[in-house]
């Protein structure tokens, strides 16, 4: 379809098995010992990962160099890894909707609320930037609508297992797994009910529907699927990022992105989708520059042929 196909990204080829263990570990620690003990453990955990993940470190170094505009130093890598570990710990509380003790500030909520009040469904495009779970706090903070999250099936199973372990009141039901032919029908039905559907628009599974656009100065393959979906549904899109700004501090940013992508006709769609991917890349880039240590794509994001 739109854009050229490239080989499946590294993160699809090599499932991050270790992460399941660490996710469960953090959930266990968080549950039994509380946030403070969990947070203290982040220091040795960060040191461990920084020392023993040379491939991820190389990818992180490349990203940091590009986002900071200077060679990455050890301190930069530390901050990136630490922020990642911290968001995993915080997920224990945020995913379960227990945000007491957290300071979550909301930006751009008015635009979202206006939409919700009209009963208009909306797609939320996020990224592997900060904590998408922080968005859950919004539902608890006065946007009483159905919120569903669309994700790759392997991740969905993993997330579901963790949610089940947490016993968070039926939150697992809100995960729509990509991969079933009716996944997008589900998305449409949530939107029809005036709900919100979040998805992460920065990684493309299975090497399909990709388009290379400049990102931090170098062409990167971004998925066109989310934009095609919005175009087919004629649904409005907002950007949504839950940025970690400090210990138990998050800033959730909502921003209008598109009233609709394309004009509903198939003819002009491809061009509209490619323009939309470009627009997303610019918005994501700006977010990365403002919050460089919230980036959690620990694989060679640019997929350069001969790096």
């Amino acid at each position: 379809m739109a854009g050229a196909s490239v080989t499946p990204p590294a993160w699809v080829q090599a499932p991050e098995r270790g992460n399941t263990f660490w996710l469960r570990f953090m959930v266990g620690v968080g549950h039994r010992l509380g946030w403070r003990a969990g947070h203290a453990l982040l220091f040795p955990i960060t040191a461990y990962f920084l020392a023993f993940s040379p491939r991820q470190r190389a990818a992180a170094r490349q990203y940091l160099g590009r986002v900071l505009g200077r060679p990455a130093e050890l301190g930069d890598l530390w901050q990136l890894y630490f922020t990642f570990a911290a968001t995993i710990l915080d997920r224990v509380w945020l995913a379960a909707g227990r945000s007491a003790g957290f300071e979550v500030t909301l930006h751009g909520l008015e635009a979202l609320r206006a939409r919700v009040d009209r009963g208009q469904g909306c797609l939320l495009f996020g990224a592997h930037l900060g904590s998408f779970e922080a968005l859950r706090a919004v539902g608890d903070a006065g946007c009483p609508v159905e919120v569903a999250v669309l994700m790759h099936e392997a991740n969905a199973a993993r997330v579901k297992a963790v949610f089940d372990a947490l016993g968070g009141e039926g939150r697992a039901a809100a995960v729509i797994a990509l991969g079933a032919p009716d996944a997008m029908l589900r998305v449409r039905e949530v939107l029809e009910r005036g709900g919100l559907v979040g998805l992460l628009a920065d990684r493309a599974p299975a090497g399909q529907r990709l388009h290379r656009v400049a990102f931090l100065g170098h062409p990167a393959p971004l998925p066109t699927g989310p934009h095609v979906l919005a175009a087919v549904l004629g649904a409005p899109v907002m950007l949504a990022f839950g940025i970690r700004t400090g210990p138990r501090r998050y800033a959730v940013h909502f921003a209008p992105f598109a009233e609709r992508i394309g004009d509903g006709s198939r003819a002009g769609r491809e061009a509209a989708v490619l323009a939309s991917v470009e627009q997303y890349a610019r918005a994501l880039e700006a977010m990365c520059r403002a919050h460089p240590y919230n980036w959690f794509n620990f694989y060679p994001f640019w997929q350069e042929e001969a790096a």
């Binding site: 009716d182 996944a183 029908l185 039905e189 087919v232």
Partner: peptide, 24 residues
Amino acid sequence: LDSIDALELSLAIAKAYGVQLRSD
């Protein structure tokens, strides 16, 4: 085909045949 195609197809089928495909 993929799940986005399934969505488009279901829209086209609803229009042409009046048959609604639902996720449930």
